[in-house]
Nucleic acid binder design. Structure first.
Length: 409
DNA sequence: TCTGGGGTCCTAGGACCC
DNA sequence: TCTGGGGTCCTAGGACCC
C-alpha cells in the first residue's frame, strides 16, 4: 500500500481552499530546495518529487508552496497503519507512506484478498486521503503493481502471471535499480525486466556484486520475500544532521559555526533516542557533484555535541582548504553497537583524571553536558530553532525562515 | 536563480594481528 | 632464505530509498 501524493494530499485535506489546485511541498527555490511531493494538479505541469524547486517554479509558477507539516503527516500515517493492523495481523511499515501486508488467502482469513484491499481503500478514503494497492505473490511484484494505477488504484497480479506482468517494464521500475545501475544495464543492452530476467546470474554478480543475482530473480517475479512485522523498530545505525546553505560558506568562522549548528541538532536527537556513538563523520559538499567525508573513531561513546562537534571541527582541516566555497555541512554520529549512553557520574571529583582522555569527565565537560540537556528542553518546548549559540549564528544563512502557513507553524 | 535531508548497504584499500 | 593467508577494524566513497 502506498499513499497517493501523501504530503500534498494532507495539505489539501487541511486547506480546503487548496483542493483542485497545484500544491507543492518542498524547499523554496531561493534556498536551493527540492520538491518533496507535488499534488496531482502540479504533476500535470511536469513537476515531480526530487525536482529542484527553481525548475518546479518555472514549470508551475502559480503553485501553492509549503515547507510541510511533518507531525501532521505522522499523525495521519499512524491512523492509516492502524487500519492496516486492524485488517490483517502482519504489517510491515517501510516508510511514512508505504507498507507491506500479508493477505495470503487462508493464512489469517478466508476472505478474498481483493475484498480486504477494497475495504482498506474505503477506510483510508474516509480519513480524507487515498491509497493505491498492489497485490502479488512477493514484495517486488506487489510494490510495482501498486504503482501501476494511481491514485486509488488496486492492481492484482495473479499467481503465475508475474513474468508477463514484469517483462515489458523498464529496469528502473525495480526498487534498488537507480540511475547508475540503469545506465550500466543499458550499456549491456538490458533495458526491460524481461531482458534482465533472462541474464546469467553469475555474469550479473561479476558486474553488480551481491545485488546481481538477486536482481535477476526479482526481475523474473520469482523472489521469495517475507513480510516482517514491524513491532520493534529497526535498530538505528547512525544519526546525522546536515544543512544546505542559500549561499556558499567561505570562511573558517562560518564553517565552524555551521558545524556547531548541525552538531547541536544531532546531539539533541541522540539524547532523545538514548544513543551514544563512537564514530564522528563530517560531510562537506562543495558543489552538486563533489561531496567529501572524513570520519574519526572516538575512545568512548558520546551523545554530546560539545564533544563530537569539536572533533568535527578538527576534521575540517583534512577536507577543506581556506577560501573554497561550501554549500552543505553535515555532522553524523554512528558506532552505537554495544555502546550505552554514558551515565554522567555526578559525584566523581574533578581531579580524578586529567581532562580529555580519562573515564571521568572534567567539571567543564559536565557543565557542557548539562548545558546540552538544558537546551534540549528549551528546544522541545519552543522548537528546534528557538535557541542557538551566538557562535553558531555566524554563517550568512538566514536560519529563521518564515513559513507561509497556518497555526501549526 | 541552477538539485534536500534522513537514512541503509556495499565495496575497496590499508593497517594490523596471529 | 627474503614475504602467506585469514580475519578484523578503520576510512572513504558511492548507490539507492523515501
Amino acid at each position: 500500500m502506498d499513499l497517493d501524493a501523501f504530503f500534498a494530499s494532507v495539505e489539501q485535506l487541511d486547506h480546503p481552499e487548496w483542493r483542485g489546485k497545484p500544491v507543492i511541498v518542498g524547499g523554496s527555490a531561493e534556498r536551493r530546495g527540492v520538491v518533496s511531493t507535488a499534488s496531482y494538479e502540479a504533476r500535470r505541469y511536469g513537476v515531480h518529487s526530487a525536482m529542484p524547486s527553481f525548475q518546479a517554479k518555472r514549470l508551475c509558477p502559480q503553485a501553492i508552496w509549503t515547507h510541510g507539516h511533518h507531525a501532521r503527516y505522522r499523525e495521519l500515517s499512524d491512523q492509516v497503519m492502524a487500519i492496516l493492523g486492524d485488517e490483517t495481523p502482519l504489517v510491515e511499515q517501510v516508510s511514512i507512506d508505504e507498507a507491506f501486508f500479508d493477505v495470503t488467502p487462508g493464512r489469517f482469513s478466508r476472505e478474498s484478498p481483493i475484498d480486504i484491499c477494497r475495504r482498506i481503500q474505503d477506510r483510508v478514503s474516509r480519513l480524507g486521503i487515498t491509497c493505491s494497492i498492489g497485490l502479488g505473490v512477493n514484495k517486488t511484484v506487489a510494490k510495482i503493481a501498486s504503482e501501476r494505477q494511481k491514485p486509488r488504484g488496486l492492481t492484482v497480479v495473479l499467481p503465475g502471471t508475474e513474468g508477463a506482468f514484469l517483462a515489458p517494464l523498464p529496469v528502473r521500475a525495480l526498487s534498488g535499480i537507480g540511475a547508475a545501475s540503469e545506465s550500466r544495464l543499458s550499456e549491456m543492452g538490458i533495458r526491460t525486466l524481461g531482458q534482465l530476467a533472462a541474464q546469467d546470474p553469475e555474469r550479473m554478480r561479476r558486474a553488480f556484486g551481491v545485488h546481481g543475482p538477486r536482481m535477476v530473480l526479482r526481475a523474473a517475479g520469482r523472489e521469495e520475500s517475507v513480510v516482517r512485522a514491524s513491532d520493534e523498530p529497526e535498530e538505528v545505525k547512525s544519526v546525522s544532521n546536515e544543512r544546505t546553505f542559500a549561499h556558499d560558506l567561505t570562511t573558517r568562522e562560518e564553517l565552524e559555526a555551521a558545524i556547531g549548528h548541525v552538531s547541536a541538532l544531532a546531539g539533541s536527537r541522540l539524547r532523545k533516542k538514548g544513543l551514544a556513538g563512537t564514530q564522528v563523520t563530517l560531510k562537506l559538499k562543495f558543489d552538486i557533484y563533489h561531496t567529501h567525508t572524513a570520519q574519526r573513531q572516538l575512545d568512548e561513546p558520546t551523545d554530546d555535541e560539545h564533544v563530537f562537534g569539536a572533533v568535527a571541527r578538527e576534521l575540517l582541516d583534512g577536507l577543506w582548504v581556506e577560501g573554497t566555497g561550501v554549500r552543505l555541512v553535515g555532522v553524523g554520529v554512528s558506532g552505537f553497537d554495544g555502546a550505552r549512553p554514558r551515565q554522567m557520574d555526578l559525584f566523581a571529583g574533578d581531579d580524578a583524571t586529567p581532562d580529555g582522555a580519562g573515564a571521568t569527565p572534567s567539571s567543564h565537560a559536565r557543565d557542557l553536558r548539562a548545558l546540552s540537556v538544558a537546551t534540549d528542553d528549551i528546544r522541545r518546548r519552543f522548537g528546534s530553532d528557538a535557541l542557538s549559540y551566538g557562535r553558531d549564528l555566524r554563517f550568512r544563512d538566514d536560519t529563521s525562515h518564515t513559513l507561509p502557513m497556518d497555526g501549526r507553524d
